[in-house]
């Protein structure tokens, strides 16, 4: 088994209104930061998981992202995956 570090980035689909993003964009203007054309708020979920290889790690993370971390009706997700070098791993 190897240890993998992953980050799943969940964002609202472009067609879905993001009122929190719009409100934050307005606040940025009031802070004096101008020129912001777009501001959309999503989530980043950091994980560490064990898997026999990268294929298995991806399979687990894809299931997790599609079924729990994101709701495909309104959200998209992106996966970043890195294997943790054995020296940093807690496993033998």
């Amino acid at each position: 088994m190897s240890l993998y570090k992953a980050r799943v980035l969940v964002s609202l689909r472009p067609s879905v209104l993001d009122p929190a993003g719009e409100a934050t964009k307005d606040a940025a203007g009031r802070l004096g930061v101008d020129g912001i054309r777009k501001l959309r708020i999503g989530k980043a979920i950091d994980l560490e998981l064990e898997a026999s290889d990268e294929t298995e790690a991806r399979r687990k993370l894809e299931l997790l992202s599609d079924r729990l971390l994101a709701n495909p009706v309104i959200e998209n997700w992106k996966l970043e995956l890195h294997m943790v070098p054995t020296t940093q791993s807690t496993m033998s």
Binding site: L17, D18, P19, A20, N71, V73
Partner: peptide
């Protein structure tokens, strides 16, 4: 799906 109200 149910999402955040338009006017927050």
């Amino acid at each position: 799906a149910l999402t955040r109200n338009r006017d927050l």
